[in-house]
Design a binder for these strands. Structure first.
Lengths: 254, 254
DNA sequence: AGCCTTTATAGTCAGAGTGACTATTAAGAA
DNA sequence: TTCTTAATAGTCACTCTGACTATAAAGGCT
């Protein structure tokens, strides 16, 4: 057998690796999917944009590290970040993914409602939201991670209640529909969307009181709040396109 | 910011970790889901059973390592292992998951048709198939990994063509149904299952020639081969149970 | 042989869910 | 007022599903 230390993990027999987390933090802005990126201030990939992330501390789990980095990059409070849904995407381990050293990275995805521009905190030269369509070639293998994250989020919208994470505490069904349309890149029929959402037990719950108008024009919409369900029954399937990105649910993973 | 080396990955500023892969290799035997386990020959957890796995080599990706370990533990040929579907489950990073040192582990799941007992190759004291229901407390956090793997496999059967990976090259619809029933732990209606499978384009393709009988009793069944599709349209949803394990596909995976 | 058991396969039927529409209501804008 | 916009209500045909019934083809038994 070729494994260095398969049974007794001899601390001197294994190769040491650096372990990082990378974060794909999404929001919906003006009907476009945006992702939080930071500009690299050093080589390699100096001046290129990258997913925020960083090294695990010696006594820290990957999810803790992801929350810590997220708080640093967005300026969100610990309480907000602590309650947030963080989805572990997958781990990237190609030996040459960092030109300088061996780094394996655990990727996470997070969803936020539309926020003010990030407080370019942390170490990055600058941080801002990018339209996912306009985000140029990123540093390292982050284009791939970003694409995987987008796929996974799109798939999870089908059978989970995750979409409400993109919305503020109270939202209209039109806003929720906007999330689906933006992430999937399709247009949905409004009455049908409404019917499905209201038929899914625990997806949303109506807010008492008078309706609020969204943008100003049109009939005021009723307000809803996220329900207590986490899974969607029946699922809200995206229309079968000719490309059908429903292939390798790895990205999905459910 | 608290990250040691967030921008310039100074090789001396980050904490080194050991990186391993752990494999949940499943098969269906006598209508029960089985998993391949190895007996530990050393402390800690000496004498306990564990998922097969091992350290990443310095220039090896996690998936390559998983295939290498799989070949070592099962005695399967490189060609077989090379073509196998390996599903990356998730990565386990709790700081105390190994009592001796900091180890992060990338978990994979693999599905095999029923095979002869593994050639206890490799380093493990012994290796054998265990009924997933009877697999006692495992070493490390492997009970958790195994449960996550089972959840994920069950979920993937719904919307992917993965179930054929549990079957030999040619199989009957009864055998395929047995896979679903075993992994999900439910009984399915035979005519309905048949209708769904045959209606899903590319799931299975009929084999020419005379039918084969399965066990001996009953009408001979037609033989099928895995189709070329990877996703299942429409999906083959499991019946909604009172427990409904369709909740947080994260832990599940998916 | 004849009958029973077992398994595969064919077909039926009512109900749920869906996509594609049409109609109505209630706001701001021209 | 009238037009435009968006929310909400409702219709209808089609598909898929679960629950069944029926038939076919093998081996085992008496």
């Amino acid at each position: 057998m070729s494994t260095p230390a398969p049974e007794g993990y001899d601390p001197h027999a294994y190769a040491p690796f650096a372990v990082t987390v990378d974060l794909a933090v999404f929001t919906v802005r003006e009907a476009r999917l945006h992702v939080l990126l930071v500009e690299r201030g050093q080589e390699p990939f100096r001046g290129r944009w990258a997913l925020p992330g960083g090294f695990l501390l010696p006594r820290e789990s990957a999810e803790d590290a992801a929350r810590r980095e997220l708080a640093e990059e967005t300026g969100l409070g610990q309480d907000t970040v602590g309650a947030l849904h963080l989805e572990q995407l997958r781990t990237y381990t190609a030996p040459d993914r960092d030109p300088r050293m061996r780094v394996v990275s655990v990727a996470y995805a997070a969803l936020l409602p539309d926020l003010p521009e990030p407080r370019g905190g942390g170490d990055a030269a600058s941080a801002r939201w990018w339209d996912t369509g306009a985000a140029g070639p990123l540093a390292f293998d982050h284009d791939r991670i970003l694409a995987d994250a987008h796929d996974r989020i799109g798939a999870k919208l089908e059978y989970s209640c995750l979409a409400t994470a993109f919305c503020p505490a109270e939202f209209t069904l039109g806003e929720l529909q906007q999330v689906y349309e933006t992430v999937w890149g399709v247009e949905l029929d409004r009455p049908n969307f409404r019917r499905k959402v209201l038929n899914a037990p625990g997806f949303v719950q109506a807010v008492e009181g008078p309706p609020r108008r969204t943008g100003g024009r049109g009939k005021p919409a009723a307000l809803y709040r996220a329900g207590d369900a986490t899974a969607l029954h029946p699922p809200l399937l995206r229309p079968p396109g000719p490309d059908a990105p429903h292939s390798a649910p790895e990205g999905r993973e459910r």
